[in-house]
């Protein structure tokens, strides 16, 4: 399957990575090469083969329903990003993480 510049833009949008026209072209070239490598898989007949998601064929372990975590908000929020748009303050207010307005 040949990749198009539209595919690159669509995927970049899905992945939330800004990409300009120049970069999109360069990326198209490199990704096409990688995709050509991947296409070698299509020669294999895989009918009836159970997909392998994990290295070991085991089942999920369950944890007991107990509260083991304490409030470490201050510790965690030391890593809050800088707000930006002219502000050098952390993107925090009243314990909340600040982001541009979420429109529903």
């Amino acid at each position: 399957m040949a990749l198009s510049i539209e595919d690159i833009k669509k995927v970049a949008h899905l992945a939330r990575i800004e990409i300009n026209e120049n970069d999109a072209n360069a990326t198209l070239n490199k990704l096409s090469g990688i995709l050509a490598l991947i296409e070698q898989m299509q020669a294999v007949d895989t009918r009836g083969i159970v997909p392998m998601s994990h290295a070991q064929d085991l089942s999920q372990r369950l944890r007991d329903d107990v509260v083991s975590k304490t409030n470490l908000r201050d510790e965690f929020q030391k890593n809050a990003p800088i707000l930006g748009n002219g502000s050098q303050q952390p993107a925090l207010a009243g314990g909340l993480y600040l982001v541009p307005k979420v429109i529903e």
């Binding site: 207010a93 909340l96 600040l98 307005k101």
Partner: peptide, 11 residues
């Protein structure tokens, strides 16, 4: 919404 003008706060 409403904690800071033009921003949303995430809890």
């Amino acid at each position: 919404h409403g904690a800071v003008e033009g921003m949303s706060g995430i809890d």
